[in-house]
Simulated assay, not measured.
Amino acid sequence: MQALALHPDGHADGVDVSPYALERAAAAAAEQGLTDRLTLHERDARTYVPDGDYDLVLCVGSTHVFDGFAGTLRTAGRHVNSDGILLIGEGFWEAPPTPAALAALDAKPEDFPDLAGLVDVAEGAGWTPVYAHVSDAAEWDDYEWSWVGSLTEWALDNPGHPDAAEALTVAQEHRDQWLRGYRNLLGFATLVLRRAR
């Protein structure tokens, strides 16, 4: 929606399997007056086939859908036109992972490269980074606290809901995995990529 706001002649498609996420996106689009330029699709992004190529394709924090960063470069990248931009947000090791970090993420060391390795993977797939934003510790903390905090608040505000106890447990487990596992070890970068010529 930010891209649509910046480009008044643009049109966008949003793809997600979550009806809730799509409902929230539709409400936000209506609030911003973007409904006529945004089409939402409830389906698996791996099988989404657009009518044409896009000037911009975004996949931030969802590369697991395409089996990781390399798979996202391949799958999401096929929808980008020859002069277009692929914007991907992906994790990377800021420091060598500890056993606690690997357990918290249910990961292996090779599941994430370091930042230089992330760039190498992109370039190896024919994409050239033209810019990247590396989230700092404060941004990561804000993201994680918002994630666990919103779920915790919902559970505390809805104690009679059948899912409240489970939501509280999930939030607490995630918080512990982050604070005692991967905090300050797993970083996050959003890369702006163009095809190599």
Rank of each mutant, 00 (worst) to 15 (best):
G117A: 12
T63G: 02
W140L: 11
F112T: 02
L38C: 09
H64W: 15
V49Y: 07
W127C: 00
I88D: 02
A107F: 04
G52I: 04
T47S: 15
G126M: 06
T128W: 01
T98F: 06
A29F: 12
G71Y: 02
A28W: 13
D51M: 10
Y131V: 03
D51P: 15
H133R: 11
R46M: 08
T63P: 04
D55V: 01
R37S: 13
P96N: 08
P97G: 14
D44S: 13
L58C: 14
A138G: 12
G117D: 02
L118C: 08
H133A: 14
D53S: 11
P109I: 01
R74E: 11
W93C: 03
A70N: 01
G68E: 01
I85V: 12
P129V: 00
W145F: 13
A29E: 06
H79P: 03
R78N: 04
E144A: 14
T128E: 08
A107E: 01
A116N: 12
R43H: 07
D106N: 15
D44C: 10
C59N: 12
T75P: 02
E90F: 09
R74T: 11
T98L: 04
T63Y: 03
R78C: 07
H79K: 05
A116P: 12
S62I: 10
G68L: 00
W145R: 13
A28C: 08
P50W: 13
E139V: 15
A76M: 05
S82P: 01
W140Q: 08
G77S: 03
A95V: 13
Q32Y: 12
D36T: 13
V130A: 02
P113V: 01
R78S: 09
P96F: 09
E90N: 08
W127R: 00
L34E: 11
T35P: 04
T128H: 06
I85Q: 06
P109S: 05
W145V: 09
T75K: 05
V121I: 15
A45V: 08
E110D: 13
T75V: 02
G126E: 11
L56R: 04
D44Q: 09
Q32T: 05
Y131A: 13
V134P: 06
E144C: 11
A76G: 10
Y48A: 09
V65H: 05
L40N: 07
P96K: 04
D53F: 10
A70S: 08
A138T: 14
T72F: 03
H64S: 14
L73F: 11
A70M: 03
S62K: 06
E42H: 15
V119N: 08
F112N: 01
A28T: 07
R74K: 11
A100W: 04
P97S: 09
G68Y: 00
V80G: 03
A100N: 12
D111E: 04
D55T: 00
T47R: 11
R37W: 09
D36A: 14
G117H: 07
R78K: 14
Y131H: 15
G33Q: 05
A132N: 11
L38S: 07
S62W: 09
G124R: 05
G126H: 09
W93M: 02
W145D: 15
L34W: 10
